[in-house]
């Protein structure tokens, strides 16, 4: 935690006796200043996480007709076993994997191209363009989902006629969901990339130009390598976001039967907790999803540090 970092510096340059009380005082001040953060961290993150871990080890058992109420039973890792063995959970993971394959490259490459265009001199009306691309991010996801759901609706929406196939059919619904997410996030990531591009030292860019590099060559050999750490951070966030995709399929589910109630792992958790009323299974699935997210982020981070060396 970064909270503890500042205390080290004074210890190094202050000699003997006095620093003990000094450090304590500083510790105390640091602690007070960190309190708001710590309180929120503990109450809204750590306690719920620990409670979810606790819940994931229990289940409710009934008997007979069930009307006499449930008994809480400790089942060790039983909930985890049943989630891992559940075909619906596998199908959900498969769906988000495919979703990520469609969404991550198209969204990030799109955002990068737009950012490079904005950064280059060729674009006029820069503010208007950046605002236009960014606006979808400002639209609440549910509203965005509903807008697209109407556009996708076979009889009242125009997209079926434009494309020649039903965007809500079995085979097309996944790209349709990815399209909503891409529309939503491309502007946000474009702004992040554009901000990073603004920080690229102009001398390097000018030097490249003096060496005869064109706009494309400058972008490919200078700008992209310089902002690579930013790109990897965006990849990590997008991977996590893709695994947790929830709102877009949930909205489309009201319009088509092709999105199942457990279409993504997050929807699986929602179904277990709020429809089936099985909190133990929902908690176990959440923990598994969190572990998968952590592992994938670690893999992407490891990959990124290796590449940027």
């Amino acid at each position: 935690m970064s909270v503890l970092a500042p205390e080290r510096a004074p210890v190094l340059d202050e000699p003997s006796a006095a620093p003990v009380t000094r450090t304590r005082k500083k510790d105390f001040a640091g602690l007070v200043l960190a309190m708001p953060f710590l309180v929120l961290l503990v109450s809204t993150v750590l306690v719920p996480v620990l409670y979810a871990l606790y819940l994931s080890l229990f289940t409710e058992r009934l008997q007979g007709l069930g009307f006499s109420g449930p008994q809480h039973v400790f089942v060790w890792l039983g909930n985890y076993v049943s989630v891992i063995a559940d075909k619906a959970f596998h199908a959900g993971l498969g769906n988000v994997a495919l979703f990520a394959l469609v969404h991550i490259p198209s969204m990030l490459i799109g955002a990068l191209i737009l950012a490079l265009l904005l950064d280059s001199a060729v674009v006029r009306l820069r503010r208007m363009w950046s605002l236009a691309v960014f606006v979808p991010y400002a639209v609440p996801v549910v509203i965005g989902g509903l807008i697209w759901a109407y556009l996708y609706s076979p009889t009242i929406g125009p997209i079926k006629n434009l494309l020649g196939f039903d965007p809500l059919s079995d085979s097309a619904v996944l790209p349709s969901i990815a399209n909503i997410a891409t529309w939503q996030w491309v502007g946000y990531n474009m702004i992040i990339f554009y901000t990073a591009l603004q920080a690229v030292p102009r001398e390097i860019v000018e030097a490249a130009r003096a060496d005869g590099a064109g706009g494309f060559r400058t972008a490919w050999s200078i700008k992209i390598p310089v902002i690579r750490p930013t790109i990897f951070v965006a990849v990590v966030f997008t991977v996590i976001g893709s695994l947790q995709v929830f709102t877009e399929p949930m909205v489309l589910r009201g319009f088509t039967g092709t999105v199942t109630s457990t279409w993504s792992p997050s929807m699986y958790v929602y179904e277990a907790a709020f429809v089936a009323g099985d909190n133990g299974r929902a908690a176990a699935a959440s923990v598994l999803l969190a572990v998968i997210c952590a592992v994938l982020s670690a893999v992407v981070m490891r990959f990124s540090t290796r590449r940027s060396r």
Binding site: L62, L65, S169, D170, G257, T258, T260, S261, T262, E271
Partner: peptide, 19 residues
């Protein structure tokens, strides 16, 4: 006692009927 959940099960199971 599982009617509400069954409605989701039905909707999921009927999905492939269309195609």
């Amino acid at each position: 006692p599982n009617a509400l959940r069954l409605f989701s099960t039905i909707s999921d199971a009927f999905g492939p009927v269309r195609s």
